[in-house]
Computed example of a mutant assay.
Amino acid sequence: MKKDILKTSIIQTSLVWENPKQNLKNFSKKIESLNGKTDLVVLPEMFTTGFSMKPDGLACDSGVIDYLKDHAIRGGFAIYGSVMFQIGDKFVNRGIFMRPDGSSTIYDKRHTFTLAGEHEVYEKGGKTIVAEYLGWKFNLQICYDLRFPVFARNTSNYDVLLYVANWPVPRINAWDALLKARAIENMSYCIGVNRVGKDGTGMDYNGHSQVYDVLGNELLNQPWEEEGIQTMEIHKSQIEKYRSKLRFLEDRDKFTLN
C-alpha cells in the first residue's frame, strides 16, 4: 500500500539517565496513546538511556527489537529511534526503523561524536541507509550526522531525512539551521527529533524538534521546548510538485562518497 499523505508523530521528552527499564515503560504509555492515529512515530537518539558512554550492562539486545515490533504491530505504524546496542563484545549507536508488519531496517550511526568520546566506545556505521515504507523513502540519520551534508546528499531520490538526537542547548542554533538547510538542499522533508531535560552529565536539552518541507518551511511551532507529542501531515505530492518545477537536484555536482 502507498500513501500520498503520511501522518507523522514526534515524541519530544526527557529521558531517565541510564535507566532502560524506566524509559521503555515511559515510552510505552506515549507510544500507545498514538495507536491507530498515525503512520510514523519518531523517538529521540538513545531513547532507552540518554547519550551515555557507558553501555556495559545498559546496551540493548534483540529485546528492544521485540519491544518496537510489538508496539508497531499493535499501533499500526512504523517507529524510528536509536539505542545503544551490543553486538558480541562491541557496541553501536543503532537506529531501528520498525514497520507494522514486523520488518525492520537498521542504521548504525556513521559519525560518532568525538567531542564526547563516542568514537572510543561505539563502532561507527559504514554507509547511508534508506528505509522504504508506504511508498516513501526515508534516509535514516542520527544526531552528529546532521553536520555532514555530503552524507545526506540526495542521490537515491529519498523523500524524508530522519534525524534523531540528543542535541544540547549550547549548540541548538546549529540544530535549527542545519535541519532547515538539509531540507532545502536535498528537496526533501526533514524531520528532527530532539530530547528535553538534563542528563547525568549535567547537559541541558531544550528540544526544538521540527519538521521542514522541501522549501524549508516549518510545519511545527518554533521553538518547541516542552515535553509532548505533535502529529502533522507530510505530502508526497508536494515533493513531486517542487522537484518537477525546481530541478535543482539535477544540477548537483557529480562525485561519490567513500
Rank of each mutant, 00 (worst) to 15 (best):
I79L: 15
F248L: 15
E118V: 04
S9L: 06
D213G: 06
K127W: 00
A183C: 11
I96W: 02
D204N: 10
L134E: 13
E32S: 07
V16P: 14
N186A: 15
E18M: 04
Y189P: 03
G202T: 03
V214P: 00
V150K: 10
K254A: 15
W175P: 01
V83Q: 10
S209N: 05
G75R: 08
L161G: 00
Q22S: 02
V193D: 03
D204T: 13
F97T: 07
V121H: 00
R171Y: 12
D101H: 09
R252M: 14
S237V: 01
G95V: 08
S28P: 11
L179H: 07
D4R: 12
E225N: 13
S9R: 06
E240C: 11
S62I: 07
Y242K: 08
F27T: 09
Y205P: 02
S209K: 02
S244Q: 15
S52G: 06
T38H: 05
M232N: 00
Y212S: 05
G81S: 05
I172R: 02
E32P: 09
V64G: 05
L68V: 08
G36V: 01
R182V: 15
Q238S: 13
H208Q: 10
N221Y: 09
N166V: 10
I172H: 07
K236T: 04
A59W: 06
N166E: 14
N154W: 01
K245G: 01
Q230W: 06
